[in-house]
Design a protein around this nucleic acid. Structure first.
Length: 373
DNA sequence: AATGCGGGGCT
DNA sequence: AGCCCAGCATT
């Protein structure tokens, strides 16, 4: 067009992150929801309800709730029973109790309305930083960032934030991003759009990157790592269990054999054969002494992950040229020597294989062939 | 049937 | 900083 414009804009410029988000909202965002109003009370109620339920279900409950408690004062004056009754079916009833309690506090502390500062909102039960930010920003009161689960996912992907998103260090980075990209104007639409994008476009599984207004700058998409973000903490618990083991091997007549015993029908690897397992290192020591075996040596611990626990296999290893004499103490655990070539018939395999590899025995289940590594 | 989820409260 | 909540969605 104009000469000036052409000279300055000879390269296409990518609009800012927030500009693209807002642009998307103006085209595709829902703007007809009943809580999309300037009333902080209405936004508050909806935000609490939406924390736990999908929009479709909230619509129904929200309408009934607001019909009965159209104002904060009406809610504050109600009995908790009645609030809970209207909440019935939404679940997470503590949130209804908090809502009710907070309404009472607004009456006594804030002249019957929700406070207008982040600090005062955060002091109310059931309102955390994200909900407080939503109340202030969606009503246009002040520019505050939000960070709900959907936005966390979007940010973690777009800005390639690695690490468990619930860890405080990661949360910090995400909040910093939320602050950094919050626009000075249009923040209400921007925040609303972020939540909608996170929920419906940047979905946990099956994200619709082709519909995303910021896919051009999405680092996870560029690196093909959308599916693996956000990272969650590794599954809870799976306690580490120490498993002292006696690994006895002999190479008599060049056919290696391992001392195995059958596991009970309960617990780990029921009925399968494995090297002798002991409750504790001292029990292993006692048994070892009682059998009259030579010292042996401690092998490297091996971690073996099961569904519900991590086994730390702690082998004590003895490898001899000939079959060592085991006195009747060995019988107490009903063990027997098994040629390595026959292991596959007994086999619980992966853990055993790892162990045997570690002491220099290689067992190949397909070839049933073994040798020194 | 089992697992994952997520904002906020609580310790 | 980390655990718990409690019920639905997802796998």
């Amino acid at each position: 067009m104009r000469a000036l414009g052409q000279s300055l804009l000879h390269k296409p410029v990518v609009p800012s992150f927030s500009a693209r988000v807002i642009q998307w909202f103006s085209r595709y965002g829902r703007r007809d929801l009943p809580w999309q109003v300037a009333d902080p009370y209405a936004v508050w109620v909806s935000e609490i309800m939406l924390q736990q339920t999908q929009v479709a279900k909230v619509l129904d409950y929200y309408a009934r709730f607001m019909a009965r408690f159209p104002t904060l004062a009406a809610l504050a004056q109600a009995r908790e029973d009645e609030v809970l009754a209207l909440w019935s079916g939404l679940g997470y009833y503590n949130r209804a109790r908090h809502l009710h309690r907070a309404a009472g506090l607004c009456l006594s502390r804030h002249g019957g309305q929700l406070p207008h500062t982040l600090e005062a909102l955060l002091a109310l039960p059931g309102i955390g930083r994200s909900t407080a930010g939503a109340i202030l920003s969606l009503t246009g009161q002040s520019a505050q960032p939000i960070l709900d689960g959907n936005v966390k996912r979007l940010f973690a992907r777009h800005f390639l934030i690695e690490g468990d998103t619930n860890r405080s260090a990661v949360q910090k980075r995400l909040w910093a991003l939320a602050e950094k990209h919050l626009p000075e104007t249009g923040f209400a639409h921007y925040n609303q759009a972020l939540m909608d994008l996170g929920a419906n476009v940047c979905r946990r599984s099956g994200p619709r990157c082709d519909e995303c207004p910021v896919s051009d700058t999405c680092q996870a998409l560029q690196h093909k790592r959308v599916a693996e973000l956000p990272q969650r903490r590794q599954k809870t618990g799976s306690p580490r269990v120490s498993m002292p083991l006696a690994v006895l091997i002999h190479d008599h007549q060049s056919i290696p054999a391992v001392f195995l015993c059958q596991r009970s029908s309960h617990g780990i690897w029921p009925g399968l054969w494995f090297v002798p397992v002991f409750e504790s290192a001292s029990q292993l020591d006692d048994w070892w002494k009682a059998t009259g075996l030579p010292q042996g040596h401690a092998g490297e611990p091996i971690t073996h992950v099961l569904t519900h626990r991590q086994l730390v296999l702690k082998p004590r290893v003895l490898r001899c040229a000939t079959r060592p004499a085991l006195n009747d103490q060995a019988d107490a655990i009903r063990g027997r020597w098994v040629n390595v070539a026959e292991l596959t018939q007994y086999a619980h395999p992966r853990a055993l294989q790892k162990l045997l590899q570690q002491v220099g025995l290689r067992s190949d289940p397909n070839q049933a062939r073994l040798g020194r590594s």
